[in-house]
Design a protein around this nucleic acid. Sequence first.
DNA 1: GACAACATCTTGACGGCGTCAAGATTTCCG
DNA 2: CGGAAATCTTGACGCCGTCAAGATGTTGTC
Lengths: 202, 202
Amino acid sequence: MPRKSYHHGDLKNALIQAGIQILAKEGVAGLSLRKVAGKAGVSHAAPYAHFTDKQALIAAISTEGYRQLYERIEDIIRQYADDPSKQLIETAWTYVDFALTDPAHFKITFSGVIEQEKEHPAFVEMSQKSFEAVVRIVEACQARGVLEAGPSDLVAVSVWSLVHGFASLVLEGQVSHNLLERMSMREMLVFSLNKITKVPLE
Amino acid sequence: MPRKSYHHGDLKNALIQAGIQILAKEGVAGLSLRKVAGKAGVSHAAPYAHFTDKQALIAAISTEGYRQLYERIEDIIRQYADDPSKQLIETAWTYVDFALTDPAHFKITFSGVIEQEKEHPAFVEMSQKSFEAVVRIVEACQARGVLEAGPSDLVAVSVWSLVHGFASLVLEGQVSHNLLERMSMREMLVFSLNKITKVPLE
DNA sequence: GACAACATCTTGACGGCGTCAAGATTTCCG
DNA sequence: CGGAAATCTTGACGCCGTCAAGATGTTGTC
């Protein structure tokens, strides 16, 4: 798809999308600036007009991953406005589902591929917004007696740890074949979540 | 430190150790085969006599990370042979401590940097042995009523998820400064662990 | 409407990287 | 002792991230 004009028009977003596609097809190791540029139909150095270096592009791709997660969480909160247990489960599952559906994008977003994250304010902002959404869900669960009382940010760290850890273990294939024959991913996730709730979910 | 003879003698292990040192000083991004070779005092292609490619060296470094963790877990099990609660806490803490002490080595070992892990049997074996050690601790905890009954491998996945997730969040700086002022890492970890035990630990 | 400043993109170059092939050196074993 | 095998070096290849210089298009100003 060649472009008509010398200027691309929306190269920055095109590069981010190209990057996400390359991640899906070739994994984290296959992601290079030159391939991303090629896929967007520009020369190998064109990305430097929009990103200071490769890390900046990775940060943008990660930010987009966080943004997608955040949107889904907000949708779930709205959809189950009066059912905090459901909010908790579905948010946890959407996280694990992200990991299973787009492993490389998940890894680059949530598994510390990005270094010096402090230098990428947009990334920090999206990660904080997502965490705050989890805190809101935790507070709603506490109000209904689904989770024990206590500092909501602290409880949110526990919940977030459990879910992130589970997704990581699944991605790394550390969850044994034996176990997977006995129950589904979702059942295992709910089993784990039930360990930290006062009331059984689902 | 030049070597006397043409042959190195123990180049394979020297390369692994050189890799671990480079990880500590320059992080995951700074790890290259050529630098590892240089640090070991051999030419840039010498590693290929011992590793089929860079992934194989990374797998060996990861296996060594898992081996160190496994040894510490076994020590803890022996040291607290009649106190499963202590085994659980100390094993969890040694995992988080690894992440804090040697972040890059931890990431490369436990955060899915290695691809196609099935092709590296030594790595798979060490990861299974470590998981089985956790299963043993879980079973001991269940026998004492510290953890609820249920399939021990399933409960172990919950515990392992929580601990791995917590370590990852800490490494990525997702645990807020605000929270860290109120309590220590270890207190947060114990707080989370207490959520999944029947009896308070510590 | 001209033109200057600016943003965007191309071209070409550099060193570092993973990898491979060919050959040198040393060790091992019959 | 002598050849086979293991180990290491040298040199090359293409891909990579990055930078500098210049070409091209856009925008704002008088």
